[in-house]
Nucleic acid binder design. Sequence first.
DNA 1: CGGGTCGTTGACCGTGATCAAGTAACGTGG
DNA 2: CCACGTTACTTGATCACGGTCAACGACCCG
Lengths: 247, 247
Amino acid sequence: MTITKQKQPSCFVSKLTFFLDLSVEEGEALADFEKNERAVARGEAIYREGDAADELFVVKSGWLYSSRYTDSGQRQVVQLRHPGDLCGMHDLILTSRSHSLIALEDSVVCPLPQSSLKDLMRAAPRAMMLINGLAALDHVFLFDLVQAIARTSADDRIIYLLLQLLHRLRINNAAMDTTFRLPMNQTLIGDMLGLTNVTVSKSFTELERLGLISRDRGTVTFLELDEAVERIDFRNKFDNLDVQWLQ
Amino acid sequence: MTITKQKQPSCFVSKLTFFLDLSVEEGEALADFEKNERAVARGEAIYREGDAADELFVVKSGWLYSSRYTDSGQRQVVQLRHPGDLCGMHDLILTSRSHSLIALEDSVVCPLPQSSLKDLMRAAPRAMMLINGLAALDHVFLFDLVQAIARTSADDRIIYLLLQLLHRLRINNAAMDTTFRLPMNQTLIGDMLGLTNVTVSKSFTELERLGLISRDRGTVTFLELDEAVERIDFRNKFDNLDVQWLQ
DNA sequence: CGGGTCGTTGACCGTGATCAAGTAACGTGG
DNA sequence: CCACGTTACTTGATCACGGTCAACGACCCG
């Protein structure tokens, strides 16, 4: 399967192009990343904590989440993944998976061997560097999450998650305004933000009461986006990128 | 200044060699990373949140921490850095720093331009890949921190931090047993674990009362290491590495 | 109609935050 | 050598946010 810009741009290449113009050769080197496809049903695991770690996965469609369980059975969600994301990079030098990767809804992923990165480094060093840069960006997002969990109230954590999602989803859909689909249930949201489903429910109700957001079965709308941004001092990192030094 | 294995192995090369045997050529390509030195006094910032992000820093000696401040002036420490670590990778594609890098005690760092990575990729792709792998490992450690903060008690968070430090420090000093120097004050520990200095103090006292650890002005000893490991289900990721695919 | 998932709401409780006072260790200058 | 100031740590009293438990309601799909 060849990928041409006109016909069906791959979401991975399309996400990378959001950040950096890629040459035809670079695009071709990346085409291999989506040679194979695998469908995963909602709730199904692509891999689980402890599995051997030797593959990467490009998300083609759907939403996924990375999670781990504590001794006592508590779940912690550490990351959400959307179309165009590359999953599995964290375990690059680990023998076994540090987390499970689960489909939040029916999804399609493209598996590839970890060692493809070595080839890519030779064939398209600039693209390889960008991929590393995006992994580093994910790292920074995790800083944000740590800070939100450790230092802010339940209400503010919810706002943080919603704002982060809004800006992430805009990368795939530039036309998006302030309404987006949120296919996560409240237990999952709580497990990501260090809250219980009960607190998530109460916080959502409170945010609606304040007029910051509104909800309509699975979609969320920011009614007062600026106020939300200011309230938690949110900085959209996607607006603050510099990839020029990669040239 | 040339670096020879016999005389004075650089701590960066020495840390990388802990994970992967490097060739002479690869060692030479990495020597550039420590061409320049800069001393920083305790409490001094190497860079601050918002500064331009175009340099990297190899830690030569001392301890550093990465932190950020919330709107309301609360500090969140997101990472500790020790000799041999490479700092600044997170902001690879960001224009401005996502966090401040502060010296925890008098330290020496080696600044280098971000663009050195491009050269390294050509000259020593394997080393470049290992560096990316170690950045990915840091990412996983942050998963651990998120989980500790979001889902465990104050006492358990302290145990987590102490165990993680113990294993990290063993990389620089293979002879280390269960005693190590802890130059962090309790406010800083609290700011890392999402606690106050008061709670940190009380938790330390409790852990001593339980006989798990003992303290002696700036040093900590695990009296019951196995019990501590089991109590929080701690996994030492440094024992679980696979760099063979880099060959 | 029935079962399951998901969200809502209320009562109560517990961990850690906050506030405050006191102590210990250490460096500086007289 | 001691007086003093600073920083770090300890301990106790009180408070509040979010957890826990439980009941109920909305919605969906068979």
